[in-house]
């Protein structure tokens, strides 16, 4: 009789321990994924900043050869300054309006830059300029980095979101206030900025 009680008590304690460990595991998993999306987001912002930093130099170089392409140059400069004013901190990653503003501002700069690179085609001297070539390859490299970091952020955010929504983690997530995050959504084929081929 007494032995049975002891066994029952032991089993109960064991169950509580197991439950506690499970809870702890889920919680820590959420914290880790949450932290990772923030790290990834910081990387995304880094590479966008890197692109923005290239623009003034690029504009100055192009101006030296194609000063009368005023419209395109102005578009680039304006979208560059707009990008600077639309920053998005990690805690705003679940604010759709802010996220869209961010994406639109960066998208406008992408469009302006690819237009600029198209215009440049008409200026063989500029295309032969070593400084311009360096800037151009840096810009291409940075666009590629943006694609990479966006993809990594999306992967992190999706892993996090899945965890937040899955049963039974969603109960823990709800209790501790973990909310799903937004990620970049692009129609297939538009994830990459359009590339301009200069070789032909």
């Amino acid at each position: 009789m007494k032995k049975g009680l002891l066994i029952g008590l032991g089993a109960l304690v064991l169950l509580i321990i197991i439950f506690g460990l499970m809870l702890q595991g889920s919680y820590n998993e959420l914290v880790r994924l949450d932290q990772e999306t923030e790290t990834r987001w910081a990387q995304v912002q880094n590479v966008y900043q890197r692109r923005a930093d290239l623009v003034p130099n690029l504009v100055a170089t192009v101006k030296g050869y194609a000063a009368h392409e005023r419209e395109v140059l102005q578009e680039v400069t304006e979208s560059r300054s707009r990008v600077g004013s639309v920053q998005l901190s990690p805690d705003m990653l679940n604010n759709p309006a802010a996220f869209q503003r961010f994406q639109e501002a960066q998208g406008a700069l992408s469009t302006a830059l690819s237009r600029l690179l198209l215009v440049v085609e008409r200026y063989p001297e500029l295309k032969a300029n070593q400084n311009f070539l360096e800037l151009q390859s840096q810009l291409e490299g940075t666009e590629n980095r943006i694609a990479v970091e966006r993809k990594r952020f999306n992967e992190a955010a999706q892993a996090y979101n899945t965890r937040v929504r899955q049963f039974p983690t969603n109960l823990i997530a709800g209790f501790f206030g973990f909310h799903p995050r937004l990620y970049f959504q692009a129609a297939p084929g538009t994830e990459r900025a359009p590339t301009v081929d200069f070789s032909s």
């Binding site: 590629n144 694609a147 990479v148 970091e149």
Partner: peptide
Amino acid sequence: SFGGGGASGR
């Protein structure tokens, strides 16, 4: 790890 740096050509 790799962050997308480098260059492409044809």
